[in-house]
Design a protein around this nucleic acid. Structure first.
Length: 881
RNA sequence: GGGAGUUUAGCUCAGCUGGGAGAGCGUCUGCCUUACAAGCAGGAUGUCACAGGUUCGAGCCCUGUAACUCCCACCA
């Protein structure tokens, strides 16, 4: 190559990564469209969070999906990348709200709906675009179509279609229920959005006086005393002898002038607490049920921001915790506080902001889950959608089978507004696909519901709404159902499960064939990377320092699907070093190239080592392909790594050097061809994992085609099987290793060359390997023969399979040490032989073990017996000296 | 209270359907050998958590135990 000598000595990703990416985009390699000549491969992945910076979790998502998609594209599929929704995430709104509050001292209500939404849009645009440019840095082959993949138009239409359909089927209903309320985000949350955290708290034992019985009290234990103002009863177990006579009596609710009854309900556990439970139907899901059974009033005592309302009397306006403190003090002074106990319990927290959520009774929209879950369970049971790794099927099933109705309304402004209209005149509710202004029943004015839908409601439609559903578009027909969803296990409930049941309901098909689950990226101490801990590592910084390929290598290797991984800088360095290794192997290749086409020479021109590397390469093609097909990306990559570093670089390049350097050598050209062939094809195998460096190298090698991105993925080729040569070469390599080993043991520097005599029956093989011993085993000259007549008895002796090697360096041999070593080796071989013979003499082993295994054992036995014979011989002659 | 996962070299982890224990990093020894010191060659280090069982054969399958982790769950 003309510019081989100008290539940088070290791998420098900055010099080509951006350039290549732009070229790929410009040439349209990432674009996918309906193409009947090809099979579609569609991949769905979750969104990068538009409120911030690309983080390591996104980098992992992107890397894995990109590996799959590049691989499939090279195999001739029309590969489409469908990024998950980036649109309705309420995180965006919350960010903007925070911003408003902190910087301008305003709330969304001060701004009004239109102005507020405009701000959210601006924010989203700004960060959305930033994220897209960041994705490019890691080589993501996304063809992010902003027009097609945004919330407006198409998606809104799909959302409305779905909402109305479900409503008409009675699967969406509005009702008063206990929901989780986040007083910071000021919205309802679904069950999945609440995280339960173990917290140290207290049990407050409060005495409720019994009406008309001076001095008699009922003691209840509570963890949330401030809800007392919403109590409408106290319940006891009907079987509880202690309280039987209380049932039906009336209690005086402390701090208020209200009177509440004592009711009997099975729900109460006699063993727990005092056996008496205060019932607050408006603020506890269990109490809510009890309340329904006993027809109790629901009294809400909290405002939306978790301050107390008028029912709290003099505590009105106080924050819930302030109120708690004040009322406890008052109760104590009144002698109504019996005791306080420490108690740790699970407290629900908002998963976005961490605020303790309040269960509050509220009128919300719900999706009836049971009828939707059933087909979704079936779909997975029947294998229409398969989880990888399989164990996540169980996680999914457990959730699906025990799922409660889904609260879908959110008291936010950013998102898809609920398409329900309330008539101001007749009070009817109208759910409509189109906006309406007048009531179809009475003609009165209507008002649309203020709330928006849970972000996952629209996200659940992603696999088909992005393809044009509900229209029967050609994209939908061609790309749907999709092939793979790549995501972390933390999102199975939020998103995966909901996509599956939504797809089953609305399209009648499972949305994807495979769900490829990965683990979380943790820091080097195993902690979750998070902003608050400040232990997040910015992928962009890593890329800048080590290159995107090194980062991708790190993310793809050394961890099994579904398992968490720790992020180590040292591992990124290992990836960078690997890239550098490839870089230099390529540089070496190019420096020694006189050819300008990429093909294999005629088989008759191939030398032993050529056939060996081709055979090894061929096997790697199979290993990589098989493992990629099984989603075992890590195994595929680590095998490639070993092949490139050990077989190609450490052995093949070294073996072939003499032929390359000697311009007279008639086999030199063949070496160049093989070198080029194996290297460029290996780059293709590696391309899905490390797209940049492979393209850069591939372009510099003789090649056909425009880009490695659109080149054809290598296939296993039976013509490249050279079993015999592989075995022969292995004998030579083992012999070389044995010599190196002995020399190192004796501290002989490589510069000290020695004559090497190889005594073997297989002269055919070792004759061919002569040159290798000179180059790789510090041989000054090599002699291959069948007898050992006339060899110095003092020579350094090495016994290997099929050969005995002598190095006439008698001055280095210490007779005592040598004898000890030989006896050691004898012992080892005897041990091996004993083990093998033990196996073979066991008739059950011979009878039951597969033939292949038995034969292997026999071959080993023979090999060791041959070696042992020689070692014993050597011991004798050494002793006779 | 349910469910899942983990336990393998000093550290972090691979080890696919059972057939002689692996990688990266670290460590030790020797090498600037004309692609690469981000490198080369050679070493050392393991009762594969524990106890049973199945099998000709178990890191892998079965049973039990222990420790740790995660998810789910409306016990005040």
């Amino acid at each position: 190559m003309e510019d081989a000598n100008n290539i940088a000595k070290n791998y420098d990703p900055a010099s080509f990564e951006d350039k290549l990416y732009n070229e790929w985009v410009e040439k349209g390699y990432f674009h996918a469209e309906v193409n009947k000549d090809k099979k579609p491969f569609t991949i769905v992945i979750p969104p990068p969070n538009v409120t911030g910076q690309l983080h390591m979790g996104h980098a992992l998502d992107q890397t894995l999906q990109d590996i799959l998609i590049r691989y499939k594209r090279m195999q001739g599929y029309e590969a489409l990348w469908v990024p998950g929704t980036d649109h309705a995430g309420i995180a965006t709104q919350i960010k903007v709200e925070e911003n408003l509050r902190v910087n301008e001292g305003l709330t969304r209500y001060d701004l009004g709906r239109d102005e507020f939404l405009k701000r959210v849009w601006d924010w989203k645009e700004k960060f959305g675009n930033r994220i897209i440019s960041q994705l490019k840095k890691i080589g993501s082959s996304c063809d992010w179509d902003r027009e097609r993949f945004t919330m407006d138009e198409g998606c809104s239409k799909a959302v409305r279609e779905v909402f109305v359909n479900l409503y008409n089927k009675g699967l969406i209903y509005q009702g008063s229920r206990i929901i989780n309320w986040c007083p910071n985000c000021i919205t309802a949350l679904s069950d999945a959005e609440v995280e339960h955290v173990e917290q140290a708290g207290h049990f407050w034992y409060i005495k409720y006086p019994v009406k008309g019985e001076e001095g008699r009290y009922v003691t209840i234990a509570t963890t949330r005393p401030e809800t007392l103002f919403g109590d409408t009863a106290v319940a006891v177990n009907p079987e509880d002898e202690r309280y039987k006579d209380l049932i039906g009596k009336t209690l005086l609710l402390p701090l208020t002038d209200r009177e509440i009854p004592v009711v009997a309900d099975e729900y109460v556990d006699k063993e727990f607490g005092t056996g008496c439970v205060k019932i607050t139907p408006a603020h506890d899901p269990n109490d809510f049920e009890v309340g329904l059974r006993h027809n109790l009033e629901q009294i809400k005592v909290l405002n939306d921001d978790a301050t107390m309302n008028k029912y709290a009397g003099k505590y009105e306006g106080m924050d819930r915790y302030e109120c708690r403190k004040a009322m406890i003090k008052d109760l104590d002074e009144m002698g109504l506080l019996e005791k306080i106990e420490d108690h740790s319990h699970n407290v629900g927290q908002c998963y976005r902001c961490g605020t303790t959520v309040e269960p509050i009774v509220s009128k919300q929209w719900f999706v009836k889950m049971k009828p939707l879950a059933e087909p979704a369970i079936e779909a997975v049971k029947e294998g229409k959608t398969k989880f990888v790794p399989e164990r996540f099927t169980k996680t999914y099933m457990n959730w699906m089978e025990g799922v409660f109705d889904w609260c879908i309304s959110r008291q936010l402004w950013w998102g898809h507004r609920i398409p329900a209209f309330y008539c101001q005149e007749c009070g009817k509710t109208i759910v409509s696909k189109e906006d309406i202004t007048v009531c179809p029943h009475c003609g009165g004015a209507v008002k649309q519901d203020e709330d928006v839908l849970d972000t996952w409601f629209s996200s659940a439609l992603w696999p088909f709404s992005t393809l044009g559903w509900p229209e029967k578009t050609k994209e939908l027909e061609y790309f749907y159902p999709t092939s793979v969803l790549v995501t972390g296990y933390d999102i199975i409930f939020f998103w995966v499960a909901r996509m599956i049941f939504s797809a089953m309901e609305h399209t009648g098909q499972a949305p994807f064939e495979h769900v490829f689950i990965h683990g979380l990226v943790r820091d080097s101490q195993g902690r979750k990377m998070s902003k608050s801990l400040g232990n997040g590592i910015d992928p962009l910084e890593i890329i800048e320092k080590y290159g995107a390929d090194a980062l991708r290598f790190n993310l793809a290797t050394g961890n099994a699907p579904g398992n968490d991984m720790r992020f180590y800088m040292e591992r990124v360095e290992a990836g960078r070093n690997f890239a550098n290794k490839i870089w230099n192997a390529s540089r070496f290749t190019m420096m020694n190239l006189e050819i300008d086409e990429n093909k294999l020479p005629d088989i008759s021109e191939l030398q032993l080592e050529d056939k060996w590397i081709l055979s090894k390469y061929n096997k790697i093609v199979k290993v990589v392909t098989d493992n990629l097909d099984k989603f075992e990306l890590g195994i595929a990559l680590s095998n490639l790594y070993d092949f490139i570093w050990e077989n190609f670089c450490d052995w093949y390049i070294e073996l072939v050097k003499p032929r390359l350097f000697d311009k007279e050598n008639p086999t030199g050209k063949a070496a160049q061809y093989v070198l080029t062939y194996v290297l460029s094809h290996t780059m293709q195998l590696l391309h899905p994992f490390m797209p940049f460096i492979t393209e850069e190298i591939w372009q510099h090698l003789p090649h056909e085609g425009e880009s490695i991105v659109i080149s054809k993925f290598p296939e296993y080729d039976p013509a490249l099987e050279f079993e015999a040569e592989e075995k022969a070469m292995t004998l030579v390599m083992d012999a070389i290793s044995a010599i190196r080993n002995r020399r190192a043991e004796m501290n002989v520097p490589p510069s000290k060359k020695a004559k090497t005599i190889i005594v073997t029956e297989r002269t055919d093989i070792f004759e061919k390997g002569k040159a290798f011993f000179e180059k790789l085993a510090s041989a000054s000259e090599v002699e291959v023969r069948t007898d050992k007549a006339g060899i110095d008895k003092n020579a350094v002796n090495i016994v290997v399979a099929e050969a005995e090697i002598y190095l006439p360096m008698s001055e280095l041999v210490d007779k005592e040490k040598e004898l000890a070593r030989l006896n050691d080796e004898k012992k080892k071989l005897e041990g091996e032989i004993k083990r093998v013979e033990g196996k073979l003499s066991n008739p059950k082993f011979v009878e039951k073990a597969p033939e292949k295994v038995v034969n292997e054992e026999r071959a080993k036995g023979e090999k060791y017996r041959g070696m042992l014979e020689k070692v014993i011989e050597n011991i004798r002659s050494m002793e006779n000296l």
